[in-house]
Each structure stands twice: as C-alpha cells, then as structure tokens.
Design a protein around this nucleic acid. Structure first.
Lengths: 247, 247
DNA sequence: ATACGGTCTACTGTATGCAGAAGTCGAGAC
DNA sequence: GTCTCGACTTCTGCATACAGTAGACCGTAT
C-alpha cells in the first residue's frame, strides 16, 4: 500500500442522502408535537403525500415508525390516527419515566466523570438563570439537556435509547402545562448533581425518583384543575365530504 | 330503535384479516429467535418476499417494525441486517430490564388482588415442578408467564408494553444459556410473591431487583466461560455471486 | 501476476397501479 | 316523513414498475 490517503479521516464518510421516510418521520413528529395534527385526527396517506410532496410509500413507512413509538395508532383497514393519550396513560408513562430516570441517576453516580459533573453544573446554572429571567423555552431546554446528560453519564446506551423515546413523548403530553414547578425543580437538580459527584448511587436514585415523582404529581394536579381540556371524541372516521359543505 | 340486535355482544367484532405486514413481522421474529436468520445476516427484501410468498411492500413494513424494536438494523442504502448484539449491549439491556421489572414488582405489591396472588402461586408451583422434572421448556414458559403476570398486576399498561418488548429481546439473547440457575430462581420467586401479597412494595422491588440482577450476573459468567461463541464479523455486504461458484 | 478501469448486475428507494372494503348519498318504497 | 337498498367515492393494503447506486466481474495495460 503505497497510495495512502492523507489522514484527514475527520473528513467524515460521504453522507448518504437521508431517506425520505426519515425526513417524513421527523416532519410528522414535528407536526404532532406542535399540535398542527390534533390528537385523534385521521391521517390520510394521500393527503400527507401531497402535502409533503412525496409518494405514499415513504409516508407509510414513516407511519409504521410513528406507530411503534406511540405517536400514532394504526388501525388495520382504517388507517392512521394521531394518538390521543388518556389521562391514565400519561400518568403511567410518567411512572415509567420515573423508574428509568432513577436508574439513570443511579448508574451516573457510579460512572461520574469530572467533565460530566462540570457540564451538569453548567446546565444547572443555565436553568436557574432561565427561571430568574422567566425564559420558558430556555428552562425547558436546559431541563431536557440536563436529564439527557445524566442518562448519558450512566454509560448505558440501551437505557439512553429508551429514556429518549419516553422523554419525547412525555414532552409532547406534558409541555403545555410545564411552566409551573420551575423554582424547586432546580434546587432538586443541584442536590442530584451533588449526589452524583460524590458517587452516592442510592441517594442519586432516590433524589431523581422524588424529583420525577413530583413532576408526575404536578401533572395530576394540573389535570385536576382543568380536566381534559381537549377531549374531543375520536371521530371514528372523519371522511371528507364529497362536496364541500355549503357556506 | 325497534330492531335491537340480541345482547350477544360477546360475539366479538368481526375479525379483520390480519394484515400481511403483521404476519410477516411475526414470521421473521420467529426466524430470528430460532436462529434460522443468523445475527449479521443480510436480509434481501426480494428473497424474503419470494420465500414468504408476498410482495416487497409488506416485507419492508415488517422490517421497519423489526428495526424499531431492535431486531434488525436498517442501514439506509444497504438494506436490513439481523441485529448482532454485543456483549455490552446485552448487559445493558439486562440492566434496563432489572429496573423495569423492579418497578413492576413495586406497583404489583400496591395493587395486588387475591386472584392475582393465586395465579402467581400456581405458576410458581408449575415452575418448581418443571425444575424437579428437568423440563426446560416448561421452566422457561412458567418463568416468562410469572414475570408477565407480575407486570400485569402492576396495572400499568405502558409499563407492560415496555417490559414485554424488553423481555422478548432478552429471551432472544439469553435463552441459549438460560437453563442454569433454575433452583434458586424459584425460591426467589416465592419470596417475591410473599412480599407482593403483604403489600410490601419496597421489599418486593428489592427482591425483584436482586433476582434479575442475579440473572444478569449469571449471563456475565456464562459469557466469561465461552466468550462470544458466534462472533462472525458482520459481512459488510454479502452479495450473491453472479454465477454460482464452481463445484 | 498486479493494478486499473469499464461494464454489468443485484439491490434498495421511490413511485404508481389495482382490487377490495366501508362509509356516504340519494332515489324509491312504504 | 322515514326506512331501505344500491351505486358511488374514498381510502387502505398489496403488488408492480422504474431509477439510481454500489459492488462484482473481467479485460487490458503495466
């Protein structure tokens, strides 16, 4: 081997064009999270295809994926519908999140690195600052980042996959009412980081558990105050009428 | 409404024909679990289509699903490959399982019903009997059933979904070396049931945690004895040669 | 031989076509 | 007016067709 290409391997392998199904998946997830596609809504493949400018094939594949992650329900023979979570389901999902996040914290305490701790402290400061300035978006972002960082520090890739998936759905359900519970949340984060830093696994897990459990309680309270604000009965099959309704 | 149909609603709604993609999914999962499709193997869509007697479309949809659950890896532009778990990944998956199963036990203890306990005891007896008679299959089945039963008793449907998914994969990875650890396992199960019956949530969670943790340790030991028995390097792209190789 | 380059083929990604199912609308019977 | 029945429409599920690409094979030059 005399012809060796310069060691610029950082040039990164050539980027395969991202498959359409991926981009459709991303796009539709956005549409669902942003409520442009309402829960319960019937997703007609041909409409989506036209809207996104692709054929039905990538749409169908994206729908499969969205279905398997709980964003849409695929009813054989009837098509896809945006998933409409029940109150009980959200609660259950938050419980699962609790368990997984607690485990993350436990493992993170065992695998903590100096850089990791520093990063956590940074994020914590960002969060506190965001609360002080009442910047909701930054708050949410810092919170998500911090939790993700903890899970990454667990060193468990499989766990990271699961938690990411659960968290995305939690954010979808929960974000509309998230702004509360800002102050206390970041004190808890600080305690958590302390426990992780000192390698106190059980303590870290306990704190994380209580932390996420409080989030769940907060959700339940919110729900009790304005119960099921948008509980349109899932229309069994919302066909478009053949002729436009008279105006 | 004078014409009311007899109250035989138990007749159950008409059964839509199960979509092909579902059956393909089932079939392929079987093929993977039974090792007829080896880890790392390239799954050519047209071959599968011909083998199963359907077109590529349902195959592709099934592959999407299998991919999202970690059974196959979809490499854009290169096709589908049976997932080849690394040792680390299996370990990590077993950790996640531990956390989720422990949570199941905790919740089960809080929601225990008389019937549930009875069913658990039944399964436990079956398991003990299977061990006594050295019936591997029955052992595995009873074990799976028992764990599933516990998760069902948790009353958390979301949790049940996750645990089921994780358990299926664990069984795929782990079954070949499962037979060990029979005896002690069922004593632990008995203790677990006791804790659930008395509603001792923390105790139930602790027992389940240690129980599954021991399973993980057992896995690690097995691996240490015969490390990576079938670690064929994943062929990057096993094309079929144009002309059959000369015999 | 060994290296290089062109052609060719197998495979994926995407689009289109077709059949069947299920709801909708309207006309006719009562 | 209300009910019933049948044609129509729209949608999904599945199959097929087409294009682009990446590797395999093979001849040629060195």
């Amino acid at each position: 081997m005399s012809t060796e290409l310069p060691q610029q391997l950082s040039a990164r392998r050539i980027d395969r064009p991202v498959p359409l199904r991926e981009r459709v998946y991303q796009a539709m997830q956005e549409l669902i999270i942003s409520r442009q596609l309402a829960p319960g809504q019937h997703l007609v493949e041909s409409e989506l295809a036209e809207t996104l400018g692709v054929s039905r094939q990538p749409i169908r594949e994206a729908l499969q994926l969205l279905n398997s992650e709980g964003w849409v329900d695929l009813r054989p023979g009837y098509g896809a519908f945006v998933h409409a979570p029940t109150e009980a389901e959200v609660d259950q999902l938050l419980m699962v999140r609790s368990a997984l996040e607690a485990e993350s914290a436990r493992l993170a305490a065992l695998n903590a690195t100096r850089q990791g701790i520093l990063r956590l402290r940074e994020l914590c400061e960002e969060g506190v600052a965001a609360v002080a300035n009442d910047e909701i978006d930054k708050m949410v972002t810092a919170n998500a980042e911090l939790h993700r960082c903890v899970t990454e520090m667990s060193g468990n890739q499989v766990l990271l996959d699961f938690v990411s998936q659960v968290d995305r759905r939690v954010r979808w359900y929960y974000t509309p009412i998230a702004r509360h519970r800002g102050q206390q949340s970041w004190t808890e984060h600080a305690n958590l980081i302390g426990a992780i830093e000192t390698g106190n696994a059980d303590e870290a897990a306990r704190i994380m558990r209580e932390h996420t459990e409080r989030t769940r309680q907060s959700y339940l309270e919110q729900r009790r105050e304005n119960p099921e604000p948008d509980v349109q009965p899932v229309q069994t099959r919302s066909r478009r009428r053949r002729t436009a309704p008279r105006v």
